[in-house]
């Protein structure tokens, strides 16, 4: 395809130093604290992290779905050059579901259990465009067909509970696709599915991104899914992006010790029967993060200077890491 290279075209989404904090009674939770990444047209960015690393809040911030006591307190979210963090609720509503769509882990977050699929899909189409019901129904049917739902005409008349888990997720994806959005934020969309069904959905998503030019933010804890699906990867730890780069390069030779440990602890990366390499300790509470680098206490390379928070630095072309002592030696040998 004659797509412009991502380096010349402006990125679909550029998140710069995003900060989303929750002002709770127990204190300020810095759920997202300095997150930056870019996604080009038709590209898939895998946003990876463990529970509580802030990946979901990042997705919600982009969608403008952060509820009080949470608030975006800093940074910018540039979507095709417009800063989403500065838009009014009304302006955001025109974009949401139209130019930007979201897919959740649980498709029942998207679907209304008491309405038929066609009602919900037609409503979605007509919310953003003045089209006849006939035409909206046609668009809904095409969208269902596109995500591989057999006999879409019949299935339109079904209720959500009449679908299996995998099919429900397909319907949720179809709804996200109705307006051919420029960006889809997908939050762990295949985590609850069986592997064979996950494989089917991943294959559909790959096809869609390649053919429609939709950019995708794929939020997951599963490195193996990102390995096969994404173009770029951003790794989050304790509210910050600690590493960003091309998915192959990062997974083959990670710079940040946390990424290194995370990849090392995947069972298939270890010799069978040998103890798994593990990261000692556990994720710190976001309420009382240690001073300096948040990973310091668990890091085998930590030194005195780690008491100062490192910046996200581009150690190599296109390879960013938030670390004073990255694994540069291994990149040379990889």
């Amino acid at each position: 395809m004659a797509e412009p290279s991502p380096h010349s075209a402006p990125p679909t989404l550029e998140v710069r130093n995003l900060q989303t904090h929750f002002f709770t009674r127990a204190g300020v939770v810095r759920a997202v604290d300095d997150v930056s990444f870019t996604i080009g047209r038709g590209k898939v960015l895998g946003l990876v992290g463990e529970s509580g690393s802030g990946k979901t809040v990042t997705g919600f911030s982009i969608m403008g779905l952060v509820d009080p006591p949470g608030r975006i307190v800093g940074g910018s979210i540039l979507f095709q050059g417009r800063d989403l963090a500065k838009l009014s609720e009304e302006e955001m509503r025109h974009l949401r579901g139209n130019r930007i769509a979201m897919i959740f882990q649980d498709p029942m977050m998207t679907l209304n259990p008491v309405l038929r699929i066609d009602t919900q899909m037609i409503e979605t189409v007509q919310a953003h465009e003045k089209v006849s019901e006939e035409e909206a129904r046609g668009r809904a049917r095409d969208a269902l067909g596109m995500v591989g739902i057999p006999s879409p005409d019949e299935r339109l008349k079904s209720y959500p509970h009449q679908f299996s888990g995998g099919m429900r997720q397909r319907v949720a994806i179809a709804i996200a696709l109705l307006h051919r959005p420029d960006l889809i934020v997908a939050d762990e969309p295949t985590t609850a599915l069986d592997v064979t069904i996950q494989g089917q959905i991943l294959a559909e998503v790959q096809k869609l991104c390649a053919t429609t030019g939709t950019a995708m933010l794929w939020i997951t804890h599963d490195l193996s899914v990102v390995a096969g699906l994404a173009d770029d990867i951003a790794v989050m730890y304790a509210g910050r992006v600690v590493e960003f780069g091309d998915v192959g390069e990062v997974l083959d030779a990670p710079l940040h010790p946390y990424t290194h440990g995370l990849i090392g602890s995947v069972p298939s990366r270890n010799k069978r029967g040998e103890p798994l390499r593990q990261i000692p300790g556990m994720t710190p509470s976001l309420l009382k993060l240690p001073e300096g680098c948040s990973f310091r206490a668990r890091c085998p390379r930590a030194q005195e200077d780690c008491l100062v928070m490192p910046a996200l630095h581009d150690w190599l072309p296109g390879r960013l890491a938030r670390c004073h002592h990255p694994h540069l030696d291994e990149v040379a040998t990889a």
Partner: peptide
Amino acid sequence: SVPRIGNRKRAF
């Protein structure tokens, strides 16, 4: 169907 960390890009 199992995604593997060694399988890169578009191999589902």
